[in-house]
């Protein structure tokens, strides 16, 4: 049958489900080994964070889509968790090969890293389900589109930005359209979101300048 936009969207959802149905929503044995190699084992923090962010995601999903859709939100979060653990394992493996070290205590105990990685996984899931061939304005699904997830997880845009390239690099199942979508997220962060007036980036730039000994005032964002 001819490939229609609706069929393409359905195929993308089906492909994502097939890949993630065989994945676990718990850390694999390999990932557990990376955790136990850390100076400080992050296992408990990882599990607690997942639980906490899961509640935030489900609450906000139900608020955006409808209280009757709590179960759907929970199912999508589970898909996101599977992708999160899958990508985390590949990412740490890739870092192990690149850096020839086994102890990733600093990275695996970094809250911003985990939250960004999970946000990126959920962005892939949400965008896969949210694709509409009809640009008919705001629907309940498009309300969940980027940068919605940053708000839900109270995540700094430039932290989210940091994981995108590595995420694309280590996840072979991402289709061209999804890579394009993540690239558009990158561009939006770089061109506007990271430079909004409430962005912590201005404070970080100021601190960086002060450390260098040049106390300049960061320029405020232009209108």
């Amino acid at each position: 049958p001819p490939q229609t936009p609706v069929r393409a969207a359905m195929n993308s959802i089906q492909q994502l489900k097939v890949i993630l149905n065989s994945a676990s929503d718990k850390p694999s044995e390999n990932l557990k080994r990376y955790f136990s190699n850390c100076t400080v084992n992050p296992s408990e923090d990882v599990a607690q964070r997942v639980e906490c962010l899961g509640r935030a995601f489900s609450d906000r999903f139900a608020l955006a889509v409808g209280q009757g859709c709590t179960e759907i939100g929970s199912q999508r979060f589970t898909l996101g968790i599977r992708l999160y653990y899958r990508v985390m394992e590949s990412m740490v493996k890739s870092e192990e090969e690149r850096l020839s070290v086994q102890n990733f205590s600093k990275l695996l105990n970094n809250n911003a890293f985990h939250t960004s990685l999970l946000a990126c996984a959920l962005e892939v899931v949400t965008a896969t389900y949210g694709w509409s061939p009809f640009k008919s304005g705001s629907t309940s699904e498009t309300d969940l589109s980027f940068p919605w997830i940053l708000d839900v997880f109270e995540l700094r845009a430039f932290d989210f930005y940091k994981v995108i390239e590595s995420f694309i690099k280590v996840e072979p199942s991402l289709k061209r359209d999804m890579i394009k979508h993540l690239e558009r997220c990158e561009h939006r962060i770089m061109e506007s979101i990271a430079w909004r007036s409430d962005s912590a980036l201005f404070e970080l730039l100021k601190q960086s300048k002060e450390q260098e000994g040049h106390v300049d005032h960061a320029e405020p964002p232009s209108t």
Binding site: E95, F113, D159, K162
Partner: peptide, 21 residues
Amino acid sequence: NHDYHFGLEEGEGVSELFDCD
């Protein structure tokens, strides 16, 4: 088989990116 521009260079990965703040 995509046009994504990989910009990270050698010595730049998630380990370094999340180490800087």
